[in-house]
Simulated assay, not measured.
Amino acid sequence: MPSRCEVFLEILLAILIPPLGVFFRHGCCSCEFFICLILTLLGYVPGIIYAVYAIVVREANPDDEWRPLNA
């Protein structure tokens, strides 16, 4: 679990450059990063809103995403 300081800095980066804040939490090849990048290119404010959502609400847990169907 990230510390409060890490979350604060990620949110600050998400306000300045939304995809960068999501990159530090989820990585560059994640679905969250690409969604944030597209929303930022379409409009700056939707990119900020989604970046803060992706940092605060969504947990970065790759084990849940890549679990096989029969497990």
Rank of each mutant, 00 (worst) to 15 (best):
E59G: 08
L16M: 12
V22F: 03
M1C: 07
E32V: 06
S30W: 03
I15R: 01
C5Q: 14
C5M: 11
S3E: 08
V52K: 00
R58G: 02
R25D: 04
D64I: 09
P62V: 07
P46K: 04
F23Y: 14
L37F: 08
L20Y: 06
I38E: 08
I55G: 00
M1A: 09
C31V: 14
E10W: 13
L42R: 12
C31N: 09
I48T: 02
P18F: 00
F34W: 15
Y53E: 03
I17R: 02
Y44I: 07
V52T: 07
L41N: 09
G47K: 00
L37A: 15
G27V: 08
V22W: 02
P2G: 13
R4P: 01
Y50N: 05
G21C: 05
Y50E: 00
L69H: 07
L69Y: 11
N70R: 12
F34I: 06
P68M: 08
G27M: 10
G27E: 06
N70L: 13
C36E: 04
G21Q: 04
G43Q: 02
C28N: 11
S30C: 14
F23R: 10
L9T: 11
W66Y: 14
L12M: 15
Y53T: 11
L41A: 15
P68T: 10
I55V: 15
L39Q: 04
N61H: 07
R25A: 09
W66Q: 10
R25L: 06
H26V: 13
Y50W: 13
I49V: 15
I55M: 02
P19H: 02
A71V: 09
A14F: 01
L37K: 05
L37N: 04
E65R: 10
L41M: 12
D64G: 06
E32R: 12
E32C: 13
F8Q: 05
D64W: 09
I48M: 11
R58A: 08
V7R: 14
V45I: 15
E59T: 13
C29W: 14
C31E: 13
H26P: 05
R58D: 04
